[in-house]
Structures are given as structure tokens and as C-alpha cells.
Design a protein around this nucleic acid. Structure first.
Lengths: 205, 205
DNA sequence: ACTTAAACCGACCGGGCGGTTTGTTCAAGT
DNA sequence: ACTTGAACAAACCGCCCGGTCGGTTTAAGT
């Protein structure tokens, strides 16, 4: 049993470090040796645990990245409160996390999607799956808001979801380059402005 | 004089093909040989005209990419008409171009910014300069709209500009992966919704 | 104490890359 | 006809990367 534990521990260390380096430098610009050097492990260790660099990355996607996206962007908006408030708080929190992340390199999913497009269909599919889960979740949350009277019934839920995803992905890229905190603040203000325009007008009591 | 003409022609061919391949595959994943193979030229030809791969890319940025961004995203919104309409039409047209571009790989600037971040400061600076010109132009256009009565005076021009840039960059990434035409349509509808919320309320005559 | 297998090491290989160098072609100037 | 230099060809260099493989260490089972 201890064997299994050690195996898991080493694989976990490799994956965590791998994601960090892939995130910062890109997949193709990070060599397996770079990751191994960071952990003082050898090529033999790596290829004992993983079939290939590609297999390694896919496991990172499933074990680390998908869960990260889920806990940061999906789980927080699942609830029966005001969807507008839930999404606003969720974005606020996600962007705040990005601000305080010293080595933030933009929205990791967005970067990888761009890097693998047209170059590795297998990985691209995995990445698209994660994005799609996010999209589906956003759409259903917005639909919920339409039914429970928080969002105007005429809005196109898929359109709003797309707009939210687009703006989030874009601002993460821009935040990574300049003045992340100021840009986060400005972005959130405009996001709220947008939300106001799709909310049902509450009659002032 | 004919010499100079031929020189220019060859350099131009190299740059156009280079941008195309860099755009599709990324800078680090495109070898100089890849570009040369496309044009049936040799390494000697390349290094006769350019100092290095980096120098080559920077010339592409200045000669092709900057002008492309200018003609597609900056020049169209410079005018004294309704800024909201100008920006809407500009985005509509830019996205339509992307839809009909067979090999569209998202917003080229956004991709390059991500690829070079933290890896090549010189190139990153060039890219940021281009983005900044776009931003400044958007801000001044919005300011103009505030002064000439098309946009509400209370809106934060820099915030709106950031929001526009973010959403555009994001949707370009998403359009490159799935259903570009449908996503363009949905995006534009939401963009107009956003604009409606920052326009001054025209009293119905 | 011995076996066994998991876990790991590190040298090595084939290939591709950015960049250099040497040599060739060809057109313009005289 | 000869020179000159721009424009290109092609072989080459040093480096790095993904992946392989034979060997070594470690620890659990008996």
C-alpha cells in the first residue's frame, strides 16, 4: 500500500510542477527535463510514471486544471440565489485570485486553447470539453435567473454566456500584462453595468 | 534600382508567409525552414535579408501586423459620427472578416502577447505598444461620444475601452474553435445590449 | 537473509532547430 | 570582356528535446 502512496505522491508532484511550468512557459516551450530539474528527478522516473509528454499533460488537464476551473468558475455559481449576484461574486473572486497570483499568465485555459489549436487535436478536444462545461453551466444559471425573475425573459442565455466567457478570457489576458488590480476594478464596474441592462426592472417599493 | 525592387519583393514574400505561419502555429513552433520551404528559398536567402529570426518577426510586427490592426480596428472608428455606431460597425466588420478567414486562429495580437509574455521582453513591448494604441484610440473615441452627446457623461471611458477590448479578444479566441458565425452573431447582440446601457437616453420625439 | 518488483537513475539516440559559412549565379556598370 | 556585389544555394555546427534502455536502489513479503 505504501508503494501506491509513494507512486501517487511522485505523480502528483510531477503534475503540479508540470502545470506550473506549462502555464508560465507554454507546453512546447517546457521540456520534460525542465520539470524534472525542478524536482531533482530523472527521465527514468518520468517515463516510469507516464507514457509520454502528451499523456502527462492530459492527466494534468483532468486531475488539476479541470478541477481548478470547476472550483473557481463553476461550483460558485451553482445555487438558487440571484444568478447575477452569484456570477458577479464569482468573477470578482476569480479575478482577485489572478491579481494576487504573482506568476499570473492570463487565463490558463485560453492560453492552452490557443497553443494547441490545429496542432494537437486530442488535447484541443480535452480543453474544449472543459470550456463547454463552463458554458453549459453559465447558460443554465442564466436560464434559472430568467425563471425565478432575476433576469429579463427576453435575453438570450447562450449569448450572455458567450459574452461573459469572452470578456473574462480577454480581461485575464490584459490583466496579465499591465495594472492587473486597476483593470480588474474597471472591468467589474463595466460587467455590473452590463448585468444591470439584462436584469428585470425591480419596481422601487 | 531593379535590385532594390527584387530585394523588397523577396523580403515582402518572406514576411507575409512568415506572419501566416507564425499566426497559425505560433512563433516558437515555426522554424525558419518552414517559412523557407513554403517559398522554396534557402537559409542563405533568409539571413541575407534579416539579422535573425527575432529581427525578422519584429519587422513583421511593424510592417504587417501593426498596419493590419490599424486598418481594421483603429482607422474605422476615427470620425465624428456616433461613436457607438462606429465601434459597433467596426467590430461587426472585424469579426465578419475573422469568420470568412479559413485559417483564423483567434486574435493574432492576443495569441502573440500570450506566447511571448515573460519570454521575450523586446517583442512583448512591441506587442503591448500596438495594444496600447488601440486602447488610446478607443478611449478617445468614447470621450468624444460623451462630449457630443451620444454617450452618458458618467461612464468611465477607460473602463468601457477595457471591456470592449477584453470581450473582443475573448470572442475571437472562442470563435476560432467553434461555430464562428453563430458566436459572432450572439456576441454582437450582447455588445449592442451593453452599448444601449451606456448611451444617453434619447427622448422619443 | 533472500526474493521480487516497484521506483528511480543517467547515458544515450535520432531528429530538428537557429544560425554560420562557403560557394555559386547573374545582372548591372565600366 | 571584366569586375563587382546583390541574391541565393547548400552544407554544416552546436545545441536541445522527446523518448529509450540497461542498470541500481529501495522496500515490502516471506
Amino acid at each position: 500500500m505504501d508503494k501506491n502512496l509513494k507512486r501517487m505522491a511522485t505523480m502528483q508532484r510531477l503534475q503540479v510542477t508540470g502545470l506550473e511550468l506549462f502555464y508560465n512557459n507554454g507546453y512546447y516551450n517546457t521540456s520534460v527535463d525542465d520539470i524534472l530539474k525542478e524536482l531533482s528527478l530523472s527521465k527514468g522516473a518520468f517515463y516510469y510514471h507516464f507514457d509520454s509528454k502528451e499523456d502527462f499533460f492530459i492527466q494534468i488537464l483532468e486531475n488539476l486544471l479541470a478541477r481548478k476551473v470547476y472550483s473557481l468558475l463553476i461550483e460558485p455559481i451553482e445555487g438558487h440565489d440571484n444568478p447575477v449576484q452569484l456570477i458577479t461574486d464569482c468573477f470578482e473572486n476569480a479575478l482577485e485570485t489572478a491579481v494576487h497570483n504573482e506568476l499570473d499568465c492570463g487565463f490558463v485555459l485560453s492560453n492552452f486553447v490557443n497553443e494547441f489549436r490545429g496542432k494537437n487535436e486530442k488535447i484541443s478536444k480535452h480543453l474544449n470539453d472543459i470550456l463547454q462545461i463552463w458554458e453549459v453551466n453559465l447558460v443554465s444559471t442564466i436560464q434559472k435567473g430568467k425563471f425565478n425573475g432575476h433576469i429579463d425573459r427576453h435575453v438570450d442565455a447562450e449569448g450572455v454566456a458567450l459574452f461573459l466567457m469572452s470578456s473574462y478570457m480577454g480581461v485575464r489576458t490584459l490583466m496579465a500584462d499591465n495594472a492587473p488590480s486597476a483593470r480588474k476594478y474597471r472591468f467589474m464596474a463595466q460587467l455590473k453595468q452590463f448585468f444591470k441592462s439584462i436584469e428585470v426592472k425591480q419596481p422601487a417599493i
